[in-house]
């Protein structure tokens, strides 16, 4: 009986289930990291005066690239740990595209392999393309 149902159908459903789980775990992991970083941040500087958020300081505040965030987080700097959680959150939907690509490769759907590759390329251009104006 099972043989009658096309193999493609199963691959499609499996990958959908997997994407659902991946999105969920991405959000859970990132919020846990943000929570840990946030609690350390509050215990260290909770009593300090609020930084002047009405003035935009931009990149001078630090933790704006992967290397900086990673070294900071390993050094247990509270703000860097929060930023690491933020990175995991941003990476979650990007990783989702990569998994969709694997799904379409398994299904041998050439048109959608191409379409997904285009989307992934746009993402990579945005990350590495030096758009930091």
């Amino acid at each position: 009986m099972k043989k009658l149902i096309s193999k493609h159908f199963f691959a499609d459903k499996d990958i959908e289930q997997f994407i659902g789980l991946q999105l969920r775990y991405g959000v859970i992991i990132s919020s846990l990291i943000v929570l840990i970083g946030g609690l350390i941040y509050l215990s260290q500087s909770g009593q300090l005066q609020l930084p002047p958020y009405h003035q935009f300081t931009g990149t001078r505040a630090g933790y704006t690239n992967f290397g900086e965030i990673l070294t900071g987080a390993i050094g247990m700097r509270a703000k860097a740990i929060i930023q690491l959680g933020v990175l995991v959150l941003i990476a979650t939907p990007i990783l989702r595209i990569a998994f969709s690509l694997i799904g379409f490769v398994l299904e041998k759907d050439k048109m959608y392999i191409l379409i997904t590759t285009i989307v992934l390329t746009v993402m990579m251009v945005s990350i590495f393309g030096g758009l930091k104006v």
Partner: peptide
């Protein structure tokens, strides 16, 4: 996916402040 595409650009420009991101997220 759409938000992530611009989020990387904004992160690199310093638009994402950890002190604000933490309670918001």
């Amino acid at each position: 996916v759409t938000a992530a595409a611009s989020a990387v650009v904004y992160l690199q420009r310093g638009y994402m402040d950890p002190g604000i991101a933490f309670p918001v997220v």
